[in-house]
Design a binder for these strands. Structure first.
Length: 949
RNA sequence: AGGACCAUAGCUCAGUUGGUUAGAGCGCCACGUUGACAUCGUGGAGGUCGGCGGUUCAAAUCCGCCUGGUCCUACCA
């Protein structure tokens, strides 16, 4: 083995090997375990969130696989309608100078497929770098043929049950992308805005109670005035009661619109009158419904003003009795330009009463960044009410369990207040809606045009045109858990792996995806999609800020693995920016944070970092320090393995594959480390069962570094290297070294797959273990029978003596390597026996010249003293020790004991404590008190002795 | 406005059903390299557990209020 751990040399090699050997496919045996990967966007590249999530899923999958479960990690990518279409549009524009409309629908779709074939493999290659043990042979895409079938099937069946319907409704319209988007894709941002108060003249000479000939309404959107169809007042409002049923004359337009009574009008706000524009505001739409008002649309798909308004009734039928004329001056103006002109014209007409500056929130499209316009359009919807009921019940009755639990509340809150889901998108890339229209506009929904004709008895020569729209991406990804397994066919895979065991996902897509999967899956399979949902937080930068290109704080997981030099990192963060003016500051911050660039750390270290930070229900601040630390941990494991191999290879380890071995004798240290291994195995397993990856990684780290390396390897040296040790003992220690390491590698494998495989290949044969890969070895199961309390206590004693000596050395400024004479005294018979049994270990680890039992404590030479239990560890001071330093040290120690004693005496002095606390607790305090008191006595004795010199 | 979550060492975080001398890693200080490892070893310093109040024999842990932070939902004519 190389002297230093170099991950880049082992990682790609092992992944290719595993994949070639088909190690990721389900074994076909054992209880099924399955995870469906949240399909990443096919256009995307792997970000920290993916890397984190993939690490968790891979750890779970590898662990369950080793436990003998028939494990499937289903992989695939999402076609991601808007994102992909935008990306290819930009590419075509840049390369050919054409828009998608120049190309036409078919040619453009071809371009997208072409692009997908060219570049769609980027993210899956990155997934391989993370070590993801997904079954590539089952890779799926949300627009592959199978998904096409599934999507058609679901849509048609929902339609047949009236759970999908089409209608003219007010939707969130993106004027840049020219498509509807769902509520979830709208991002509300706080803004400073203006609030204009307008006078609307009352018609027919009517006046208010106060004698005014007009009403005052206020708006942040003056341009919607053109589409007003009423002014509402509160039914309880005495100021305007007489006006209900009367009319106002809409300024600039001249249309007569009624004054209506509706509780939407708030008497305490402004004048108490509110303009109602049902076609351009969601609240007003509701008022329109309640009051039977016409819907007057005044905007085109670009959100510019129409020449003539379009009026509809609530069913979306054109209304002939509304005068559609609009002032010619505004025709074709964009909404913001129209706003300015309308305000100016109102002011010129003396109808602008007041302008206020207010803070409000505006809806933005999360893809385009444009302000969303509520617009009346024909769209397809899923009626969610019926679907939501069983979906809520499934979580309530525990069929689906959220981890951590509190996300269930978030889920319930959202599910109980669900709006119908607008599923049509005016895009080209996606699943085209399986609906056909004849010349009269009759709609026929079927899986194919042929089926539509057959079903509805249509003539073969009747011209049918398919709906131009595609389905929301989340509609198809909502079928992910069963669609990937072959549904609607009743496949073996579906029977075996559905419902999936656990969904690993971020809280940010609980609404987008998780909730909809639950609804659709229950509807079509009668099963839940997954039994558990493990919800993790967002990966943020070291300061807790969201990583984003515009902030220039993005870390690329691949850069953490391979390393990146500073200039490349700066270039990556500042190149191709939307706001180039920020580049300088970002470059400076980057150079400050990473003066040397980023070193290579390897996949295993990155994975370990994620796991150690994967604590329940909170975002993680990615900590570069930990990444370094876990890279060092890999290095530690690597070097410990080198030591083991150096001492075991070519030697009789008492367990070689050929079964030939001499007699074996286990030392105290051997029994102890085996015992501790059992406990660690139990701890790690328990932690993984509880999704406490932080605890799992911590337990393993502690065992490997603080026990196996720091103590056990050191304790093995005297046995292996000292002639005094027997051959049987040497054999026993070699066997333990090798077997414990082999088990550790299995235990660590799900978390750090590469390094464990690399080392395991060399160690397994020495441990008498046959097999081609650690991946398919059994998961270590703790054997309670090998937990050895005596050995643990003895080792604790041994460590205590060694640490006591080291402590004295450090405090007394005695060179670490200087051989010392040490006396033990005042202890029990057990202590005396322990000394006899462990003389070799003690001498070696504490670097002693001589250690012996002092029978008569009162004859002790002047010494520095430490206590191990009741026993005193003495390092004679002659010529060694600084008297003042020792006195100072003792004073500090005595002070510490005094504080402890004081605390306990106070407790025990409290009568109600003694009376009410459980006897065991009280006894524990008494025991502690006598321990501390004894320690104090020894320290004081020692102090007096030294002071008297 | 409603709700959720968070606040523990300089930093990033653990802390099971209340009883621990409140822990880890990084960072810091001192010392140390002939035989696994300086991506290291040994020893050490560092915390009134955000604040106030309550329950209890006992609170980092349970309850209430407050402060600060993050996020979600809603509203803003």
């Amino acid at each position: 083995m190389d002297k230093t751990y170099q991950p880049e040399q082992i990682e790609s090699r092992w992944y290719e090997r595993w994949e070639a050997d088909n190690r990721f496919a389900p074994s076909g045996e054992g209880e099924p375990f399955s995870i469906m990967i949240p399909p990443p966007n096919v256009t995307g590249s792997l970000h920290m969130g993916h890397a984190f999530q993939d690490t968790i899923m891979d750890t779970l999958t590898r662990w369950r696989r080793m436990q003998g479960r028939n494990s499937l990690w289903q992989v695939g990518t999402d076609h991601a309608g808007i994102a992909t279409q935008m990306l290819v549009e930009r590419k075509v524009a840049a390369e050919e100078g054409k828009s998608r409309h120049d190309l036409g629908r078919e040619a453009f779709i071809d371009k997208v497929w072409e692009w997908k074939h060219e570049s769609g493999g980027h993210i899956t290659r990155q997934l391989r770098r993370m070590g993801a043990s997904v079954d590539w042979s089952r890779e799926r895409f949300t627009m592959d043929d199978g998904f096409y079938q599934a999507v058609q099937e679901v849509f048609v069946r929902l339609y047949e049950e009236d759970l999908v319907y089409r209608g003219k409704r007010l939707v969130n319209w993106d004027p840049t992308l020219h498509t509807a988007i769902s509520d979830l894709e709208v991002e509300n941002r706080d803004q400073q805005g203006q609030f204009w108060h307008f006078r609307y003249p009352l018609a027919d000479g009517v006046t208010t109670e106060a004698g005014e000939d007009h009403l005052v309404v206020a708006t942040t959107r003056p341009e919607t005035l053109l589409g007003d169809s009423a002014v509402a007042v509160n039914p309880e409002d005495p100021r305007y009661a007489s006006l209900v049923g009367k009319f106002v004359e809409l300024p600039l337009v001249g249309r007569r619109i009624p004054v209506v009574a509706d509780e939407h009008a708030d008497m305490d706000k402004g004048s108490g009158c509110v303009k109602i524009t049902p076609a351009h505001d969601f609240n007003d739409y509701e008022v329109g419904k309640r009051c039977g008002l016409p819907l007057i649309n005044v905007f085109s798909k670009d959100a510019s003003v129409l020449e003539r308004a379009e009026a509809f009734d609530l069913q979306g039928r054109p209304l002939a009795d509304v005068d559609p004329s609009l002032p010619a001056a505004y025709a074709g103006l964009g909404r913001f330009e129209a706003r300015a002109r309308i305000v100016a014209d109102m002011e010129a007409a003396g109808l602008l009463a007041q302008v206020e500056t207010v803070s409000n929130t505006l809806p933005y499209g999360d893809r385009s960044g444009d302000v969303i316009e509520p617009l009346l359009t024909d769209q397809w919807f899923v009626a969610v009410e019926e679907l939501a009921k069983p979906a809520i019940a499934a979580v309530e009755n525990g069929d689906i369990e959220f981890v951590p639990r509190n996300y269930e509340n978030m889920y319930f809150a959202w599910m109980r207040d669900l709006q119908d889901w607008c599923i049509s998108r005016q895009l080209w890339w996606g699943h085209r809606i399986p609906a056909w229209y004849d010349a009269e506009g009759n709609v026929y929904v079927a899986r194919t045009a042929e089926e539509a004709r057959a079903k509805h008895g249509l003539a073969d020569d009747l011209a049918l045109t398919q709906d131009e729209d595609v389905l929301d991406t989340w509609f198809s990804s909502g079928l992910w858990t069963f669609g990937t397994l072959g549904w609607p066919e009743p496949t073996e895979a579906l029977k075996t792996f559905h419902p999936s065991s656990v969904l690993v996902t971020g809280f940010d897509i609980i609404f987008f995806w998780v909730a909809r999967m639950i609804m659709l899956t229950l509807k079509f399979t009668g099963e839940v999609p997954f039994k558990q949902v493990y919800v993790h937080g967002l990966v943020r930068d070291g300061q807790g800020h969201k990583m984003s290109k515009s902030k220039g704080n993005v870390l690329d997981p691949i850069d953490l693995i391979d390393g990146i030099d500073l200039d490349s990192l700066v270039e990556k963060r500042t190149g191709n920016m939307m706001q180039p003016q920020k580049a300088k500051a970002i470059a400076k911050a980057t150079r400050g944070e990473f003066p040397e660039g980023i070193e290579p750390h390897g996949t295993d270290a990155l994975r370990y970092t994620f796991l150690s930070q994967a604590t329940t229900g909170r975002d993680i601040k990615f900590d570069m320090g930990r990444l370094d630390g876990y890279r060092n941990f890999c290095n530690k494991l690597w070097n410990a393995s080198r030591y083991v191999l150096m001492n075991a290879e070519g030697q009789d380890c008492g367990a070689s594959l050929d079964g030939q071995s001499g007699e074996v004798e286990l030392s105290l240290a051997d029994r102890w480390i085996v015992s501790r291994l059992q406990q660690t195995e139990a701890q790690v397993t328990r932690a993984l069962e509880d999704y406490r990856f932080d605890h799992a990684s911590q337990a393993l780290y502690d065992f490997v570094w603080n026990e196996y390396c720091d103590w056990y390897l050191e304790l093995s040296k005297p046995v292996l290297w000292d002639d005094a040790a027997s051959e049987a003992a040497k054999r026993g220690t070699r066997r333990t070294l090798v077997r414990v390491l082999e088990a550790v590698l299995r235990l660590a494998h799900p978390m750090m797959p590469y390094i464990t495989e690399e080392i395991w290949q060399r160690v397994a044969p020495l441990a008498g273990v046959a097999g081609e890969s650690v991946m398919t070895q059994p998961w270590p199961v703790a054997d309670e029978g090998r937990i050895d309390e005596t050995a643990t206590h003895d080792i604790e004693w041994l460590k205590g003596v060694i640490v006591a000596v080291r402590n004295i050395r450090a405090e007394m400024n005695i060179a670490p390597g200087k051989p010392l004479e040490v006396l033990l005294t005042k202890g029990s018979e057990a202590d005396r026996e322990r000394l006899a049994a462990n003389r070799l270990f003690l001498s070696r680890l504490a670097k002693l010249e001589r250690i012996y039992w002092l029978e008569a404590p009162d004859q002790a030479p002047l010494s520095a003293t430490q206590l191990v239990g009741d026993m005193e560890v003495l390092v004679p001071m002659a010529g060694l020790i600084d008297k003042d330093a020792e006195l100072a040290r003792l004073a500090k120690e005595i002070d510490k004991q005094d504080k402890l004693i004081g605390g306990i005496e106070k407790k025990l002095g409290n009568e109600s404590f003694v009376a009410k606390a459980p006897e065991a607790v009280v006894q524990k305090e008494r025991d502690k008190l006598s321990d501390f008191a004894a320690t104090r006595r020894v320290l004081v004795e020692q102090r007096d002795k030294i002071a008297s010199l």
